[in-house]
């Protein structure tokens, strides 16, 4: 996508530069009209419409996969994340675990995060795991997240939420499924 954009930019700019330098001979009206239609229809209609079509062909399936559609034959783990000025409250409703500024998930499986806020609008974002979603007071948004590899990922608040915004961070620990089950047990016992 980026390279396509760069190429388009270069082509358009060089065309302009050439057009500026060019010294056309006398043009009769009909010829000028042909040139005009060629550029406007070619560049103004065909170019953007075809690039849009291309973008959509790639874009729609990606978007489709990010939908929190029911997964066949599998219970998706539900985690509640609530934004506060300026920290994250994480709850596992089934295991009754509550955490602060950290999130543990099984790697290789989708999880659904129930996002909401206790005060102002925040936004949940782990750059390396995918898109962001706003956390709004009074509403719950569901974000489907999946970490393919176990590891530690950094997340932060992406919607401006006041003086502590820059420091409103959290970490995501993705465990291999077995480790995750063990962690759940352990965390449960600690309570």
């Amino acid at each position: 996508m980026a390279s396509f954009a760069v190429v388009t930019l270069l082509v358009v700019v060089s065309l302009w530069l050439y057009a500026v330098k060019r010294r056309p001979g006398e043009l009769d009206a009909a010829r000028a009209r042909r040139i005009q239609n060629r550029w406007i229809i070619g560049g103004g209609l065909i170019l953007p419409i075809s690039s849009m079509a291309l973008l959509l062909v790639f874009g729609i399936p990606i978007g489709y996969r990010m939908l929190p559609l029911p997964v066949a034959g599998q219970q998706v783990l539900q985690i509640e994340v609530t934004g506060h000025q300026w920290w994250w409250q994480v709850r596992y409703p089934e295991a009754d675990i509550e955490l602060r500024n950290e999130l543990h998930i099984p790697a290789g499986q989708p999880v659904d995060l129930q996002l909401t806020s206790n005060d102002v609008i925040h936004a949940f974002w782990v750059p390396r795991l995918g898109g962001k979603l706003d956390m709004l007071p009074g509403r719950t948004n569901v974000l489907r997240l999946q970490a393919d590899q176990p590891g530690t990922y950094h997340g932060q608040c992406a919607e401006f939420c006041g003086t502590g915004h820059a420091h409103m961070k959290f970490t995501v620990h993705a465990h291999a499924p077995d480790d995750f089950a063990a962690w759940l047990e352990g965390a449960d016992r600690d309570e």
């Binding site: 959509l56 489709y64 559609l69």
Partner: peptide, 11 residues
């Protein structure tokens, strides 16, 4: 209106 042909409406 094109996306009406591809996407489910309410999620």
């Amino acid at each position: 209106a094109m996306p009406v042909l591809f996407l489910p409406p309410c999620i």
